[in-house]
Design a protein around this nucleic acid. Sequence first.
RNA 1: GGAGGAGUGGCCGAGUGGACGAAGGCGGCGGUCUUGAAAACCGUUGUACGAAAGUACCGGGGGUUCGAAUCCCUCCUCCUCCGCCA
Length: 428
Amino acid sequence: MLNTREISQNPEFFADAMKKRGKKYFKIFQEFTSVQEEWKTLKQEIDGQKHQQKIKGKGMRGLKGDDAVQLRQELKDLSSEISLKSAQLKKLEEKRDLLLLNLPNLPHQDIPVGGEENNKIIQKNGTIRDFEFNPLPHWEIGTNLNILDFETATAMSGARFSILKGAGAKLERALMQFMLDEQSRRGYTEVSPPLLVKREAMVGTGQVPHLEEDTFKTQSDSDPYYLIPTAEVVLVNMQKNQIINSAELPCNYVACTSCFRSEAGSYGRDVRGLIRQHQFYKVELVKIVKTEDSENELIKLRKDAENILAKLELPYQVVLLSSEDMGFAATKTYDLEVWIPSEKTYREISSCSNCTDFQARRALIRHRENDNEKPELCHTLNGSGLAVGRTLLAILENYQNKDGSVSIPAALRPYLGQAAKIDKNGLS
RNA sequence: GGAGGAGUGGCCGAGUGGACGAAGGCGGCGGUCUUGAAAACCGUUGUACGAAAGUACCGGGGGUUCGAAUCCCUCCUCCUCCGCCA
């Protein structure tokens, strides 16, 4: 959520920033400012009348007879007028707040302006393997090795679900463990959180209302549970309404959870394989930091995510996202994209964002040096470290051999009983 | 699932219809005193909107009333007891 005070102090700056995030947002912004003006005018009017009500109301005390009847009638009229206007005010407020919740974070000054085509490749790491045969897509590799089963999963759950079995399931578990261990070692506190949360939590991190259609929720008329689309939701909301002692910052959290996404609006995209699933594991990193540290912490966060790719010896590139391509809550985002041999292209495997105070304002996450100081909003950052399913498919593809087997990256071998490859007989 | 209790400012805690944004205490800040500090004493000390006057905020929402921290309904959270359960 943006700071409304700053908006009213410097509307041109915000208008310009929203324009950079896309036309759609600029329009919402304009609507917001006009509703806000309307609200202010009405509020002033009501405040004046309430003042009258308060003063005159005090005269009611101990008043008897005709005078009392007359005054009561007068106050009754005033009261009903106020409640009528208050209802209007409330409507304006709701409208304004909804508009505000639908405005994205300010884009950082250093990022490219425009759409996806303006994303900037910052660096490329690792060496792309030169295959002496035609590399297969991971769904063929996995199906041939009998470690991936899409058909059975689709039969019981529908499209965009999959089953990993045998060495595939073990490889997934090894990856989760490896990633959690690495991130713990690098100073993150491991968390095992709820996967179902209240709507409020989803609003806190900005998934709702803006991405409401992309969420799964439980059946309930009044108060459904939302299935988390990322552990970011829980890791950030752990600090909701808290005032953290500044000395404890930065707080670093890591969690490996299932993530649930309805993928509404992505019909026909990435229908094959593990790239886009309704349910997948992801290791998520969250940092709660002081304002002045967030720029540096974003670099650190990115390095923590990159470390996994480097250790797994997967070729990848770092991309700085443009103002329109960036996620809602972010001010600056680096995507890590892993090389997919069968597609001869890079695909997103991690997204590392600085959300500045955008989520902290919604969820009211603050810090201060000592109890008597005025608390200050924290900055929040999040990044995948990494998406487990996508890492698994990247390994299948990049480590495939001509005979159909898949080698195990050296870093993972300790987690798989020192096995060096997966073939038709499993791990060996 | 059943029965009961509780939720008030940075913290503790009083407050059952109007003078309550809220006693008192603690803590913080400023001052007096002191070579300095402590103690004591005096003052001050929440947030939002507003240029200001003012208005709103006592877990959330709704209601009764001219008027609600206070009465009613409902939801949430916490505590105690009973039941059920991995």
